[in-house]
């Protein structure tokens, strides 16, 4: 019981005060990396010999796809922590990670479509990766819808955590099934440039962008969780003292 008490009451405040100092750093580092990566990737990296300049969208598409998936796992792991240890902070993370992850998934889908236009001559292709991404978006939307549907925050937390966990178990199966389905219907069409054969002059800006996206994600998730923590703890003394201090 001692632990539970610690988690339930101690954590949000500790988290809020601890992360206060991180926020500007995360902001500066993520913006710097994203600006450097974009200028490098869009301006200085060489054009692809087959796809010309259109390949440059990978500098957004690839990091966004990475985070779409990583974001789901972040959400599900937080959900598990929230369910097992009843940690309030983890429950807040589940709620905040869902829309952020959904936005990254959406960005990955849109950039995929934009890339598809010059590559395949059509905005939408039922490519395995894009289809998986679409299903992932649906999974995110499901968690968000469930989170919104309950009146009691505790029930919403637990229910969406369970759904996120069920989704996690299913994601590998879904990816694999979609892959199978794709080979069945469109054997060996155009493949995306695979990362292993990419030239270093294209790879380094991409890596910069990936790291930048991760830091950006951390920043946005922390900012969102911090405000959610404040909202959930609005009746506690420390939040009121904080508000009073800010008002002065």
């Amino acid at each position: 019981m001692g632990w539970q008490w610690f988690h339930r009451l101690g954590s949000p405040r500790w988290f809020y005060e601890k992360t206060d100092a991180w926020m500007p750093w995360l902001a500066v580092v993520s913006v710097a990396l994203l600006v450097i990566g974009s200028i490098w990737g869009l301006g200085f990296a060489p054009a692809d010999y087959k796809q010309g300049n259109s390949y440059r969208i990978i500098y957004i598409h690839v990091p966004a796809s990475f985070l779409a998936l990583a974001g789901y796992y972040t959400m599900a792991i937080s959900g598990a922590i929230g369910l097992i240890w009843k940690m309030k902070l983890a429950e807040a993370v589940v709620k905040c990670a869902a829309p952020i992850g959904a936005v990254f998934t959406f960005i990955a889908l849109v950039t995929g479509a934009v890339w598809g236009k010059p590559t395949w001559g059509t905005w939408w292709v039922w490519d395995a990766r894009i289809t998986s991404m679409l299903v992932l978006l649906f999974l995110y939307l499901g968690v968000m819808a469930l989170q919104e549907a309950f009146q009691h925050q505790d029930t919403a937390n637990r229910a969406s955590a369970i759904l996120a966990l069920v989704g996690t178990v299913n994601i590998p199966i879904i990816y694999w099934s979609v892959e199978f389905w794709n080979t069945l219907h469109q054997p060996a069409t155009l493949k995306f440039t695979s990362e292993s054969t990419i030239d270093p002059s294209m790879l380094y800006p991409l890596l910069t962008m990936i790291v930048g996206f991760y830091v950006f994600y951390a920043w946005v998730l922390l900012a969102s969780t911090r405000s959610e923590v404040l909202r959930r703890e609005r009746k506690t003394r420390w939040v009121n003292e904080l508000a009073a201090a800010k008002a002065e």
């Binding site: 499901g142 759904l163 299913n170 879904i174 694999w176």
Partner: peptide, 9 residues
């Protein structure tokens, strides 16, 4: 909404 994506496989 929440179950249909899980039915894909």
């Amino acid at each position: 909404l929440i179950i249909m994506p899980l039915y894909v496989p």
